[in-house]
Simulated scan of single mutants.
Amino acid sequence: MGHVQLPSLVLDSQRGELVEATVRVGRGGVSAERSIVALRNHCEAERKRRARINAHLDTLRSMVPGANKMDKASLLSEVVSHLQELKRSAAEASEGLLMPTDIDEVRVEGQENGLDVGPYLIRVSLSCDYKPGLLSDLRQALDSLHLIVMKAEIATLEGRMKNVL
């Protein structure tokens, strides 16, 4: 049997529409039925993907004030701006509060003791993932340095912790 060229519809991803193309049928080629089934599966998967995207965009529209009638690009831009504003507001609201940070960090700072003589005060801040035994390990490290803890503050949030000594 020789090769037969059959017209078929394929999705043009540039234009987002179906266009006519030829499919080779015969030895080593793809059968027309398989091509049509593959095309239908592809179109259905693409339709579901677009529906999921649009559903998420609708959710974003409902969450961002004044975004009901925006096109997709404007909506995404507004969402980014809104998230940046929320992040700034959260940072301002938590200013002065003891909150674990998203990054692991250790800070050691000298502190004024209000006297010309006497003990030297330091402030140590540690932010990291919480794990059992961490406070015990921290206490042993401080004892091995012969340091006296004058004050300790501990905060935890979503598996993170911050210690200020």
Rank of each mutant, 00 (worst) to 15 (best):
Asn41Met: 08
Pro132Ile: 05
Val124Gln: 03
Ala90Ile: 07
Leu9Arg: 12
Lys162Thr: 05
Arg50Cys: 08
Gln5Ile: 10
His3Gly: 10
Glu33Cys: 08
Val10Gln: 13
Gln140Phe: 00
Asp116Ile: 11
Ser13Phe: 09
Asp104Gly: 01
Arg52Gly: 07
Val30Thr: 15
Leu142Glu: 05
Glu95Gln: 11
Arg139Tyr: 08
Ile122Trp: 08
Ala38Asp: 15
His42Gln: 14
Leu57Arg: 03
Arg27Glu: 11
Arg50Glu: 13
Leu98Trp: 03
Arg107Ile: 00
Leu83Pro: 03
Glu158Ser: 14
Lys87Cys: 00
Ala67Ser: 08
Arg15Leu: 09
Lys151Met: 03
Val4Met: 15
Arg88Cys: 04
Ser94Val: 08
Lys48Arg: 15
Glu85Gln: 10
Ala73Arg: 15
Ser13Lys: 15
Gln14Lys: 15
His42Thr: 13
Val149Gly: 01
Ala38Gly: 11
Ile103Asn: 06
Asn163Met: 07
Ser74Lys: 13
Leu9Thr: 10
Arg123Glu: 10
Ala45Thr: 10
Ala32Met: 09
Gly114Phe: 05
Ile154Leu: 09
Glu109Met: 10
Thr101His: 12
Asp137Ala: 06
Asp104Ala: 08
Gly2Gln: 04
Asp143Pro: 00
His146Phe: 09
Leu60Arg: 08
Arg52His: 10
Ile154Pro: 01
Gly133Ser: 00
Ala90Gln: 12
Lys162His: 07
Val79Met: 03
Glu33Ala: 15
Thr156Tyr: 06
Pro119Thr: 08
Ser81Arg: 14
Asp71Met: 06
Val108Asn: 04
Leu6Cys: 12
Pro65Lys: 01
Gly26Leu: 01
Arg88Trp: 08
Ser94Met: 11
Glu158Gly: 12
Leu57Ile: 02
Ser81Thr: 12
Ser31His: 08
Leu97Gln: 09
Val25Gln: 12
Thr59Phe: 00
Ala45Asp: 05
Gln14Leu: 11
Cys43Ser: 13
Ser74Pro: 02
Ala141Pro: 00
Gln140Ile: 02
Pro119Asn: 14
Ile154Glu: 04
Ala90Phe: 05
Lys131His: 05
Val4His: 15
Asp58Leu: 05
Leu147Ser: 05
Glu112Trp: 07
Pro119Met: 06
Ser35Lys: 15
Val23Trp: 06
Cys43Gln: 12
Gly28Ala: 04
Gln5Pro: 04
Pro7Ile: 01
Arg107Thr: 06
Glu78Thr: 13
Gln14Trp: 09
Glu85His: 07
Leu157His: 14
Arg40Phe: 12
Tyr120Asp: 15
Met70Gln: 07
Leu115Gly: 11
Met150Glu: 10
Glu95Cys: 05
Glu46Cys: 03
Ser144Tyr: 05
Glu92Leu: 13
Gln111Asp: 09
Arg15Tyr: 00
